[in-house]
Write a protein that binds this DNA or RNA. Structure first.
Lengths: 222, 222, 222, 222
DNA sequence: GATGAATGAGGTTTCATTCAT
DNA sequence: CATGAATGAAACCTCATTCAT
């Protein structure tokens, strides 16, 4: 394996079980601290301490503090995807009630965000400052774009979207920013109302006819 | 004049005004550097140098590096609002073509972002880390929520939005995140397609009837 | 001045008198410690302490520990040359007794070495490890080569040297290594005997006739 | 053996053949790395790796990194002497042409240096810093002093040296420093010219009459 | 008021050595 | 006996902030 080759002499490639466990302890500790206090406010000593390991050990698994972050990010993405999968966000089909479908998706994404809102925030920070992190985060995000685009295309021609890729991107970005607003607050509007408005917006976007009727049927709610 | 007497041999500039100018030089310098290299990578010495002032002087105007940032942020918000205002983003009325109206707004916001994308990014970073900055940024954002909500309400009942405040928030958040994606790239979709999709989404959300017809009129575009 | 330009933001260019004094205190302290304990065994904290200055101050005058060393080396060279000059090593002329002349030169060089044998040693160590130091040391050495070559040429044709440059180099190198042996001991032969033998060697090399006669005149010494 | 007694339970005294081989692999690896990158830049992990042995094993043969160096130094001296011996540097006799004899010796020493110039340099560095290493290096050097002195004495009274021991020391030191200059460059004079000048110097020192004639015979060369 | 020299805590990283497996 | 994981002191360097001039 050329991975092993490249890291040779610098970072340890876990061979023994103990070693594997130590590395896991370190990422776990780092994920926790980055999430709580952010990257810059977390020093290597603290990571080592949290992992109950000597500072030197940290550096035998990682060349760099940044390297630890990247591993933590990968771990975070795993957790995140796991949530999405387990909540069945992807076994959607157009047969169910459209509003419920949209709401389900949004709620699931909120759930996923709530697993570790702190780290999510830190990921955003880091992505803005470090291209490498940006790339990782974007790669993950594009995966969702792709998934969504495929979904939209599968729903054609029932929904009449002109540019499924762009639409998927816009939907994900919008949903994401609203989910973040829900997670971190600060809008002054409660969670329920924001979700409802978002559902409305997407409903109209994707199934205009049905959405328009829905308004006629139940006007003046709230 | 006894004023002249008191200031003897330094009569050039009144004390007060010079002081104000110095402070302005400092913020301006800071804004520039924060925007270029970020908060953490900009040290006070560099700010002083850029402002052509001694380090000590910086600390006689500001207690803290953070204090400087907050002032820079305020200045940035001024610039930002100025752009929006000068581009007339807010003298909208429902009479013009709806798609054009939406597109205008979005383009204006993109313009405003483009004034200083670097600082915008840094503002986001800082907002995520420092509650005080977050508060400032949110306060500004809520202003836009309010403005938008008022606008939406003024368009009622032509548009039949159930909860104008929540809708305004959702619209601004969505628009904002898409604008950022346009500014920083990374989606893999070009600017035009993203804008078009966003316009579509908002068009359907706000003027469902008209939007549906638009699709019927010019189908299979793109 | 482009020097000032280049160093800008990183190292301080002493402007005030206090500043100049501080920088001098630092080199002096460094010279002392490098000489006593060597470069690697001297840490920046110790230098700061010896100079009665904060660590940070050291780094406002020097980017690097190595930079300090180079400055110390320059200072050392100044001291060294000063000794040579004050001992009149270079107002040699061929008129005086040749053996005495050679002995004078050698004794002077020994004196110069004795000013700071520790640093001399360290200079050699560093020269072997760091090309930049090697260059500095060699530059100084070549100056002596040049001086000596000029002297030899001025003595032609009385002395019949085939290649004055090479001869000068060989003489300086030989003298130097013997002087070092005298300074650091380890040969098992006393200082006087080494100097005498060296004088003999150079005497024979430069003034063969005279040297041969000298042997005939005082044979079987020792 | 009380040697074994003394070292017991700290460092292993190789008893079995495999053990001996392991120790040899370690020194060999160390010699190579020290020579290439120097003592300080070579870490124990690298030595272990190069020797294809675990770090812990290194420490069961050696108490210390320095201990390894000392062993490497001894090995180096063996190689060095081996070269000298095999090139017959010591089966000199006064019957052959004197200039050729001197040149032969010098060329042989250069050859010996060229076996491992890197380690030679490192030995010098270490000798200057660590008394123990200095002692080892000097012990070896004195061996050459002794050999040379014996040679000189055997050539008496043909050569009329007053103090053979001192002369031998001076000759070896001079030759050594010139050889080093040839090996590491930096004098600005080419190898051939330096060797020639050295031969001249020693020729005049040891066989004044013959050397003087040589000059008369072939004047104005170069 | 202004200047810029001085401070020193704190951060990241290395590596010789020990020790559990 | 070998292995290689773990240790932690110690090194270098940065920079927000203070303070003498």
């Amino acid at each position: 394996m050329n991975m092993a080759e490249r890291d040779q002499d610098k970072t340890r490639v876990p061979r023994q079980r103990r070693s594997v466990e130590t590395k896991q302890k370190i990422v776990a500790a780092a994920l926790k601290l980055f999430s709580e206090k952010g990257f810059h406010a977390t020093n290597t000593k603290a990571i080592a301490k949290e992992a109950q390991v000597a500072v030197g050990s940290v550096y035998s698994y990682y060349t760099d503090k940044m390297e630890i972050f990247k591993d933590a990010l990968a771990l975070f993405h795993e957790h995140f995807s796991e949530i999405l999968r387990s909540h069945g966000a992807l076994r959607l089909n157009a047969s169910q009630n459209k509003r419920e479908l949209i709401r389900d998706v949004i709620e699931t994404v909120i759930k996923a965000h709530e697993v570790d809102p702190g780290f999510h925030r830190e990921m955003n920070i880091m992505a803005l400052s470090y291209p490498e992190v940006k790339d990782m985060a974007e790669k993950e995000l594009r995966f969702f774009f792709k998934m969504t685009a495929r979904l939209l295309r599968s729903w054609q021609p029932e929904i009449r979207i002109r540019d499924p890729e762009a639409a998927a991107t816009v939907i994900i970005l919008a949903a994401n920013s609203i989910v973040e607003a829900v997670a971190f607050g600060g809008t002054g509007i409660g969670r329920e109302r924001l979700v409802e408005a978002t559902v409305d917006m997407l409903h109209h976007y994707l199934w205009p006819q049905e959405a328009s009727q829905a308004i006629d049927v139940s006007p003046e709610t709230e």
